[in-house]
């Protein structure tokens, strides 16, 4: 193993990336864990917003519908980086004002929570559109049938709409998840120690830029490829019982 690394001229890189003390591997993995935590949280928060947003856009009154249209249009037209800064400052300001009003001192907000809040709101706009399209694709007869059985609205949503729309929503949601993992890199600019920032710190203190940036790229790519496989399973599960898109045998 060591001999092959030696002959390939990669011994130095391997040493830099090793998990124990002189190497920076542990830092990168910690950054990756932080990135994934934020991505999971933001994706979940975004889907939650998206679900309410989609219902509001489809069944809400004219005011709610217009407000949601403004929300999705603005969020999708302004760069994520600018939104992250605005939401970050607004969020910390609001929390500190609230804390001040209740008599507490300044509160330090953890990077993970702030990241989830900021990216979640951005993701919410996109998932509103994805879920709205998916809910509209559910045959209306199914929802009418549930209504005819006397199901309350929440139960209809839980038992009929959500399971039936899953197969339409999965490709869009998979895309959003990939965007979420990549958008966590933007939090490096606000100073959260997620993968990209950890990589930059490691790279600038060892001057081995290529080694570390390529290693981080490899980690991101692994996340992307693994997510592709997992979402493939989810889609297969969501489409169970429906005729296959490929070929004539359904």
């Amino acid at each position: 193993m060591e001999l092959t690394l030696e002959t390939l001229g990669l011994a130095e890189s391997a040493q830099l990336l090793s998990l124990s003390a002189p190497g920076w591997g542990a830092n990168l993995l910690r950054g990756l864990a932080n990135s994934l935590k934020i991505a999971f949280g933001a994706f979940g928060f975004g889907v939650l917003i998206g679900l309410f947003g989609a219902y509001g856009k489809l069944y809400g009154g004219p005011v709610i519908r217009d407000l949601l249209a403004i929300y999705t249009t603005v969020i999708r037209a302004v760069p994520e980086l600018v939104l992250i800064l605005i939401l970050y400052y607004v969020g910390t300001d609001l929390i500190n004002k609230a804390a001040g009003a209740m008599g507490y001192g300044r509160i330090e907000i953890s990077g993970v929570v702030a990241g989830i809040w900021v990216l979640g709101i951005v993701q919410g706009a996109y998932s509103t559109e994805v879920l709205r399209g998916a809910i509209k694709a559910v045959p209306p007869g199914q929802i009418e049938a549930a209504r005819a059985f006397g199901m309350p609205p929440i139960m209809i949503m839980w038992r009929v709409t959500i399971p039936a729309m899953m197969s339409f929503a999965t490709p869009g949601l998979a895309n959003l998840w990939l965007i979420a993992t990549k958008d966590t890199a933007l939090l490096a600019i606000v100073g959260f120690s997620e993968l990209t920032l950890e990589t930059r710190q490691a790279a600038s203190s060892t001057r081995a830029y290529f080694t570390f940036f390529l290693a981080a790229g490899g980690l991101y790519l692994m996340v992307t490829l693994c997510s592709g496989v997992v979402f493939g399973w989810i889609e297969k599960w969501a489409r169970r019982g429906q005729p296959s898109l490929r070929g004539g045998r359904g």
Partner: peptide, 14 residues
Amino acid sequence: GTPLLLQIWLLYYG
């Protein structure tokens, strides 16, 4: 599959 920020930094610093 990789963030654009990482690509920019790889090219610029690398």
